[in-house]
């Protein structure tokens, strides 16, 4: 249970790990925008994005396998969307049975898009600890304080949620074991049976979550926690040359993709003009 890969931090001392969490989040968002900007069927743009992820992975010293593992968790989703495209896309000419060339291209397009996004997202969580991540988001949301948005509380909720993921995993593990010892069977039967078999796990889990929430609230109260006003930070986020390099690289990626898009668009314009 403990080796859930998606979203688990891989400690290291690399260039990427030392970057400012705010910058990393921005870069990750920019990267995802770049992936979405790649317009239909221009796979060269995807190649550029892939190159970016590979480069970032090498620099971060995270083993490639760890990054790839994150794709495993969503493989079902990817295959499902690809199949939808394959069988239900009626555009283009039929190449095989009900499968059209446009459907085929679309399926490839969707696979590439989802995979690249998940790779990027998991690289972010692999190189940024949950606490840094929450701090980074809080930092980025700071401007919202002007419209009275409770940024600090929001970030606190998030970091508590993140903090409790491993605890919840352990707890789930324990309860599953206790029920298995009483003969519960989670592995056989059809989907309804399996869903029903989860009740003896979910209810104790829910109850213990409430109990934990109570305990945490008491612990925070007894340490005089009073929200954002007077709190200082142990680790200050700082924007450095590393972040500048990262921002420049991702900016380059976006510019490149936009340029490619424009280039193709011009080409097809020229074609249309030629045809006229």
């Amino acid at each position: 249970m403990r080796d859930v890969s998606f979203g688990s931090y891989f400690p290291s001392n690399s260039f990427v790990h030392k970057m400012d969490a705010r910058a990393k989040i921005l870069i990750a968002i920019a990267y995802m925008v770049a992936v979405f900007l790649v317009s239909a069927f221009h796979f060269l743009g995807f190649a550029a994005c892939l190159l970016f992820v590979i480069l970032a992975t090498v620099v971060s010293k995270v083993p490639f396998l760890r990054v790839l593992k994150s794709v495993r968790t969503i493989i079902f989703f990817v295959v499902f969307s690809a199949i939808l495209q394959l069988f239900f896309n009626k555009k283009g000419t039929v190449v095989f049975w009900v499968i059209t060339d446009v459907g085929l291209l679309n399926a490839g397009f969707i696979i590439a898009r989802i995979m690249l996004i998940v790779l990027g997202a998991s690289l972010l969580t692999l190189t940024t600890s949950p606490v840094e991540l929450a701090d980074g988001i809080e930092g980025l949301l700071c401007p919202l304080k002007w419209i009275k948005f409770p940024v600090h509380e929001f970030a606190l909720i998030m970091s508590i949620a993140l903090r409790f993921i491993p605890t919840l995993i352990d707890e789930t593990d324990r309860i599953i074991k206790a029920q298995k010892a009483r003969g519960a069977d989670f592995e056989s039967g059809n989907i309804f049976k399996r869903a029903k078999a989860l009740i003896p796990v979910l209810i104790p889990l829910l109850i213990s979550s409430f109990r934990r929430a109570d305990e945490l609230a008491d612990a925070m109260d007894s340490r005089c926690y009073a929200g954002s006003k007077t709190r200082t930070r142990y680790k200050k986020l700082r924007f450095t040359f590393r972040d500048l390099i990262g921002v420049l690289v991702v900016a380059g990626l976006i510019v490149g993709i936009v340029y490619l898009n424009g280039f193709y668009a011009l080409n097809s314009l020229a074609e249309i003009a030629g045809a006229l």
Partner: peptide, 18 residues
Amino acid sequence: LRAKVGMMFQYPEHQLFA
């Protein structure tokens, strides 16, 4: 096997659900 080997963990009351 599990019918013949019962197991109880710390805080067994946390397994109550019904």
